[in-house]
């Protein structure tokens, strides 16, 4: 078990190392290079060369690559020329906002998906299950940016019940009093496709479980449908769900980029979007790297959680 855990951790570390390398070469292979994005496309070659020298971009590849690692090891993610701040400190607040939004969304989506999936699985092929199935296809075919825009149109512009965006404070910091108010629409938007996808996957798991003998056996010893669903089926059907929740991390960010942009919610996705529009390389690179590492960690966490939940787990 210890050996298997070390192997799993080793895999994760290797993935992170490859990721860091990959991102380095993505930046390195950029036509024009970072200097152009800082100085503008029409900068004079002399100015570009000077800046390249200043940033160490005239060194050989392997040297730049080592510097890249050294900087990362010290938590140095670069300096944002558009925001005039070190990227590491810049990302902090935005990351915090994203975590807040994602936590709300994750709780809502997992809770709803569990209920919907259980209902869908329990009803087998009967009408309620079919209706849930149809809703799921619609749910994850709806683009978040469309849903978000329509929600703003209805609830912010027409009805004026909720704010159209932002978080009610300075760009990246919020007043806690109005924060929840500002979270409702983005969270609803981001939850929709996630709930649809999760509940579909989970519903299939549940349906498979309901075909098992132990469900019939549980009914035969007088257990009610609620107890069977939550006490017996849920536990067995949820095992693959933990893996899926680990894989949810990237979809949260993907949905997050679009949702945060629609609502001007100052999170990591919004920052990614702004830095892409302003060609703020260091920030862009740091966010890509951060998202990659979070994904690897998410998968790792899901695996570990599975080991804890599953008494029958076997390592190969």
């Amino acid at each position: 078990m210890i050996a298997a855990l070390t192997k799993r951790l080793g895999d994760a570390l290797l993935s992170v190392a490859l990721l860091v390398t990959l991102v380095f070469f993505m930046v390195y292979a950029t036509p024009g290079g970072p200097a152009y994005s800082i100085l503008g496309v029409h900068a004079s070659p002399n100015a570009v060369a000077a800046l390249n020298r200043q940033m160490g971009l005239d060194h050989p590849v392997w040297q730049q690559y080592l510097t890249w690692w050294a900087h990362l090891a010290h938590g140095n993610l670069g300096y944002s020329y558009t925001e005039h701040a070190p990227v590491a400190s810049l990302i902090g607040t935005y990351f915090h906002n994203t975590l807040l939004l994602d936590a709300v969304v994750a709780v809502a989506a997992i809770g709803l998906a569990t209920l919907l999936g259980l209902a869908q699985g329990a009803y087998g092929r009967r009408l309620p299950a079919r209706l849930i199935g149809a809703w799921q296809i619609l749910g994850y075919s709806l683009p978040t940016f469309f849903v978000g825009t329509v929600l703003i149109l209805v609830f912010a512009a027409d009805l004026a019940w909720l704010p159209p965006g932002g978080i009610g404070g300075e760009t990246a910091t919020a007043h806690s009093a109005t924060l929840w108010h500002h979270l409702i629409l983005p969270a609803a938007t981001l939850s929709l496709p996630l709930t649809a996808g999760l509940s579909r996957f989970f519903g299939q798991q549940v349906r498979d479980e309901y075909r098992q003998d132990y469900v019939r056996a549980a009914a035969a010893r007088g257990l009610g449908p609620i107890r069977i669903a939550f006490g017996h089926v849920l536990r067995n059907a949820a095992r693959p769900l933990t893996t899926l929740i680990g894989m949810m991390v990237p979809s949260l960010f993907v949905g997050g980029v679009l949702t945060e942009s629609v609502f001007n919610y100052p999170g990591l996705g919004w920052l990614l979007w702004r830095s892409a529009l302003e060609q703020d390389y260091p920030t862009l690179t740091a966010i890509v790297l951060l998202i990659g590492i979070l994904t690897v960690l998410g998968n790792l966490a899901a695996d570990l959680l599975n080991t804890l939940l599953d008494v029958r787990v076997r390592y190969d």
């Binding site: 549980a218 009914a219 017996h232 536990r235 067995n236």
Partner: peptide, 20 residues
Amino acid sequence: RGRDMGLVFQNPLTALNPSR
């Protein structure tokens, strides 16, 4: 069910909940 009458299944491998 389960109180006045009990049912034993053919396949004991699948008739018990594996996770409890």
